[in-house]
Design a protein around this nucleic acid. Structure first.
Lengths: 206, 206
DNA sequence: CCATTAGTTTGCGTGGCACGCATATTTGCG
DNA sequence: CGCAAATATGCGTGCCACGCAAACTAATGG
């Protein structure tokens, strides 16, 4: 049931989200007006708020989409795969596969990377990004509950797992962004983080 | 060096934060104008923005303060206490000790509890609350790095521990708020969450 | 006790944002 | 083709964050 209507809506949403990120990375958060984003997406300013309830939400939308995909990916992992292996793989998928990576304007263009860094540092955006992570975490928790046969309503377990997995990915990404080049490959960092978490994060010997 | 100046500033900040929370729990987020908060704190509207850069930040300020205290508490735990025991205790302290708990308007008044619930559900506030948690997490990571002799710049370990600990507390709180009365004591939930995390969150037997 | 200086509060003005409401336009379906 | 539902747009409103400059107040040194 992919009617013209739904497709167009998805396209507009994507165009708005994309334009928002693009312009922000380019000029800085408060040199971009909603009007600019709407124009870049070929839509009226008023329509912008039919899709997103704030500038920040638009910018975080792609982050949200990607985070949600992790939960979906987990559901598609073979049922007999051990939980933490499945989580690791589901998370890794979001960074390896990439029709969207190709769509980047200049994958290695320093200007772009710097812009994204600045964007991530913007306080006004961090909250919205974290909220996206939290929403995805809820989905992930549901998927974990299904897979492990635990109960979301009575057990903390699935939420703890989801939160820990989210945290592992977040820390790995942060580490990746902060590290000097040549950076350790993100795949290795994620794998490593999951390994440590699944081992209970024991204190290292002094 | 506690000059009159510093003290007054701290008082004003507290008054603003308190008024913001109070009014929001009472009337709902968007029935409170910045003007109202400023008035309740006995200060001009313009001054509000000298202390907080948004309404949401003011409301989240107490949450931030409390979260930051966890890091401080960890630094004061005996150095020979095992890491996870110290983390558990440091976290628990924030919920047991309470000169501020007594200051609550009506500790068990259902009206108040309902108001707080509604407040926490407000999307516009969740982002700011999560940002506060993230800021505190950075402090906590630094404290963990000190205690374990690891390096914030090169090791993911301290950040992973901080994130996992944060998550344990967050999940426990969420579980507490969602559970029917009589709720499981928050202390038990937190202890339980930490135990599970420190054990590596193994999948339960089916 | 007073004068100088640095830090804080306040009022005013500006640009922008989120959203309700009414209207026009487009899509899906019989 | 024509109707009903969904969507896009235009306009108006209230609020908010913040820059700037002036009034004010605490701290410091004679």
């Amino acid at each position: 049931m992919t009617g013209l209507r739904e497709r167009k809506k998805a396209e507009t949403r994507a165009a708005l989200g994309w334009a928002a990120i693009h312009l922000t990375a380019e000029r800085g958060y408060d040199n971009v007006r909603v009007e600019d984003i709407a124009e870049a997406a070929g839509v009226s300013p008023r329509t912008f708020n039919n899709y997103f309830s704030s500038k920040a939400e638009a910018i975080a939308s792609r982050h949200l989409d990607r985070s949600l995909r992790t939960a979906a990916a987990l559901r598609e992992r073979p049922a007999d795969e051990p939980l933490w292996a499945a989580l690791t793989q589901a998370s890794l998928e979001q960074f390896t596969r990439g029709p969207e990576v190709d769509a980047m304007p200049s994958p290695a263009h320093p200007q772009w990377v710097a812009g994204v860094r600045t964007m991530l540092a913007e306080p006004a955006l961090q909250g919205e990004r974290l909220r996206a992570v939290a929403i995805a975490e809820a989905e992930l928790a549901a998927a974990v509950a299904e897979r492990t046969g635990t109960d979301l309503a009575t057990d903390m377990y699935p939420r703890l797992v989801a939160a820990a997995a989210s945290a592992a990915v977040a820390v790995a990404m942060q580490h990746y962004l902060d590290s000097p080049d040549p950076p350790t490959p993100i795949e290795r960092l994620i794998t490593d983080a999951f390994t440590q978490v699944a081992a209970g994060l024991p204190a290292p010997p002094r």
